[in-house]
């Protein structure tokens, strides 16, 4: 590297520095573009995977945008959906206090559209509709009984619908099934459907054991399924002391009477004289 063996000590390269600089800039642009092309399909597939993992909720349509307002819409787009939904839940609370059922319904609609995978929103929205709103009308002294029944019934059905929508989005969530069953039991007095929903709930992951008991209780009140119910109740009784709740014992006793089970075959021990 000494001048002796390298007479021109300077770099021997005909290219001017400007040309080199421009080449480097072109290379920079090219690298960006090639990287862009390369990652496009990769990011597309990741996006698909994210959707499959339920990390990415569906798109936000124009309706959501209008209801949300510009700022919240942008926030929701920018990865703050959950936060926007949380703030909407605060808003919903105010609407509940003001007994503004129309607004409350649309707010819960919005919350669940932002975060369809948060079961709590479905559960709570349905509770507001099927219980609070319906009771508000059913117990309203100022209205005629006909109107009261009409409006009250409508909100119960809204609550039922809302839960069904929630179940479509969260089929694995037992609590929504349980709540649906409770609406059938408490609001419609439909013990057969309540029994079915409790039974489905009981099979879902994380469901507490009482779901199975509730399913059996409801079945006992479902016309025509008494034998099935008796088998279920007897099975639960046999499973362990933890199932032998007063209600279970009572239902079992009722059915044994109703189905005229012979003394010898009864599950319940004979009562003392």
């Amino acid at each position: 590297m000494s001048p002796a063996d390298n007479p021109g000590i300077f770099r021997k390269n005909g290219m001017s520095y400007r040309l080199r600089r421009n080449l480097k800039r072109a290379a920079a642009g090219l690298v960006l573009l090639v990287f862009g092309i390369g990652r496009m399909s990769w990011e597309g597939s990741m996006e698909e995977e994210w959707k499959r993992l339920q990390l990415r909720a569906g798109g936000l349509d124009l309706g959501v945008r209008e209801q949300l307002g510009q700022m919240s819409y942008l926030a929701a787009l920018g990865g703050f959906r959950s936060l926007v939904a949380s703030f909407l839940s605060v808003k919903a609370f105010n609407e509940w206090e003001n007994v503004d059922w129309v607004k409350l319904e649309s707010t819960y609609g919005l919350m669940t559209r932002l975060q369809p995978r948060v079961a709590g929103y479905w559960e709570e929205g349905a509770w507001h509709l099927a219980y609070n709103a319906s009771a508000f009308y059913l117990l309203n002294e100022e209205m005629s009984p006909g109107v009261r029944r009409h409006l009250g019934g409508r909100y119960i059905r809204k609550g039922e619908e809302f839960l069904r929508e929630g179940i479509r989005n969260n089929p694995e969530e037992y609590l929504l099934r349980q709540r649906l069953a409770e609406i059938y039991r408490n609001k419609f007095g439909d013990h057969c459907r309540a029994a079915d929903e409790f039974a489905i709930a009981a099979r879902l992951e994380g469901a507490p054991e009482y779901c199975r008991r509730f399913a059996a209780y409801e079945m006992a009140d479902c016309e025509g399924r008494e034998w099935e119910a008796y088998a279920a109740l007897a099975g639960l009784y046999g499973e362990g002391v933890r199932h032998r709740k007063p209600t279970l014992l009572a239902k079992l006793g009722e059915l044994e009477e109703k189905l005229s089970i012979p003394e010898a075959k009864r599950v319940l021990p004979e009562k003392g004289p």
Partner: peptide, 17 residues
């Protein structure tokens, strides 16, 4: 900075290195 023309070197090593 780069020269527009000509070269510079320090102890025989081109300044661009």
């Amino acid at each position: 900075i780069r020269p527009s023309a000509g070269r510079t070197a320090i102890f025989g090593v081109d300044s661009t290195r």
